[in-house]
Design a protein around this nucleic acid. Structure first.
Lengths: 223, 223
DNA sequence: TAGATTGTTAATCGATTAACAATC
DNA sequence: TAGATTGTTAATCGATTAACAATC
């Protein structure tokens, strides 16, 4: 029971983790400009965050700053990359090369996050064998075995909602530890499989709701 | 100052809004199965939520249930769709038809959310004039004028990070009220423009951090 | 030294969970 | 009536913001 607490603590606040990539991006720019130190005030101004929050976030990566001068830029970059494991490369499998899957396969930005999609799978005979963005598409039935043999830990799901669960099960049974789910389906998986959803519907819901209020709300409020 | 409070209240908790699409999806299935009433317990079991939370979320849409029988499915569907304005169609412009933009243009699921991408724009001469997923691509320079004339309120950004701010400015100056931003760039816009980001880096950061702990953490904890 | 900046502790805020009376 | 279910109020939890002493 002690171990559980330890693990929980080491995750850090998820809200903090979500902000780290923005820090990293800014810090890399500063570093490229040859800037050695940066203050929480500076970061806060650029990213529209309170300096207090910036300091807390940075503290959770283990970096300590120097009063008066601020934080050492290269050290901070290194700490964030280590914290997220973006310093080492992670190989991933992609399931589904429809519109969205193909777009992910072609996205160059993932290397900034140490992520490489090494193989892509599809169940459509029309797609298997084709080369998309430099990778030959394999049949979905090969995913399980290959993932096991190549010790893949990360799976990306970009198949239609109907087949998402099936693919997720195959990934889980192949020992894949984490799934990045771009399908609109909610996945049912064992506790020990990490799932992170890119949920377009939720995001659009927030936007739609705010827009609904903007367009109709104020008028009503004026009555 | 009273009006501000009213508006704030009417937004409802954003955490609640984010869950509504999942409710809607389930309710539509139940409705198709001919089921007339559903309890918060049933919804909670299916969506892995506490019944208490389900009741609170539903309450914020204005629907009241009947003790013993639960909530009226069609009424609840209608209430959620109205709450999000997904009952009426919303026309949107898309900027950028690279890999990701094209995928969005071809995505059929948006009609469930009352969203139609009516025109798509790009600045690359190679793409202007081409037809992608049934829409002819227009030059970016036409976006501003056309958005104004067609009274478009929603803009979707899928251009590279470098040009995202420029496109956002054009949208804002054309009177677009809300921007759905798929680019990795943080946008700087007037207070009155609503922005919702699909932030792959943040999402991957959470996944990466959890995976980092799973892979290295427990071993350390065992020392 | 004086002033800027960090790091830490306390206060606030919002959302989730728990408890329970009201209702069909 | 009895039992299931809602709706509401209170307690808990986590994250953000504020305050301020410590430090270079």
């Amino acid at each position: 029971m002690f171990r559980v607490e330890l693990e929980k603590e080491r995750v850090g606040s998820l809200a903090t983790v979500r902000r780290l990539p923005a820090y990293l991006h800014l810090l890399k720019q500063l570093n490229a400009d040859g800037r050695e130190f940066v203050s929480s005030t500076h970061i806060g101004r650029d990213l529209k965050l309170q300096p207090d929050q910036v300091r807390k976030d940075i503290a959770s990566t283990g970096i300590v700053g120097k009063p008066k001068s601020g934080y050492h830029v290269p050290a901070l970059i290194h700490a964030i990359e280590t914290f997220l494991r973006w310093d080492n490369n992670t190989d991933a499998f992609l399931a589904g090369v429809g519109n969205l899957g193909s777009a992910l396969l072609g996205y160059k930005g993932f290397e900034d996050y140490g992520l490489s999609i090494v193989s892509a799978f599809d169940s459509s005979p029309a797609k298997v064998g084709k080369v998309i963005h430099g990778r030959q598409i394999l049949h979905m039935s090969k995913l399980r075995n290959l993932a096991e043999r190549m010790h893949i830990h990360l799976g990306i799901i970009a198949v239609p909602a109907e087949s998402a669960q099936e693919v997720a099960d195959a990934m889980a049974s192949a020992g894949i530890a984490a799934i990045w789910n771009f399908s609109p389906a909610g996945l049912n998986l064992p506790e020990n499989v990490i799932v992170e959803n890119i949920d377009l519907a939720s995001s659009l819901a927030v936007l739609s709701r705010k827009l609904a209020i903007r367009l109709s709300g104020p008028a009503e409020a004026d009555l």
